[in-house]
Amino acid sequence: MERELVVSGVGGQGIQLLAKTLALAATREGRYAMLAADYGGEMRGGPSKAAVVVGDAPLQALPILPSAWSAIFAHHRFAEGVQDRLRPGGIVVANTPLVDPSGFRPDLRVFAVDAMTAAKAVEAPQASGFVLLGAYNALTRMVEPAALVAAMEELLPPYRRQHAESNARAIAAGAATVEVSA
């Protein structure tokens, strides 16, 4: 079975990094993963989307997904059309207050996560993207939580090593957010 995640947000929110972290974690678990990135020339402020697909056999998924099992909405901007592709019962992580969790189709399972507040609470204000990822993975168990942290550390360049601990706190804080609300 292939499971698809679409991440939608604005350049600078860590969209690409959180998607890459999840895809790498799945790969390190020995599973098949695909990561398709879609972003403009801007570094910040432009549309930023990514698709991650994970499966136990060579993947059939298209690099532009016709439908998806789940989504993370990090920002309301550039999100048009994304929920239309979610299959009935799809899982949604909505980054409040930037995203209104009441604005989704009634058949979707929507989990509101105030990522910035949670990130600040664990003194990781730069890591709200990892809060969303931690929350998403706690809901879906796409990968083992430890694999997520290991992939995050593997992707840090040497000059960003100092963020490993705060990123890990952000992932855990995200998981705690949905474990309370779920």
Binding site: A23, Y32, A33, M34, A36, I64
Partner: peptide, 9 residues
């Protein structure tokens, strides 16, 4: 571009 830039295991 999709062939060049999509990441796959």
């Amino acid at each position: 571009p999709l062939l060049a830039q999509t990441r796959v295991g």
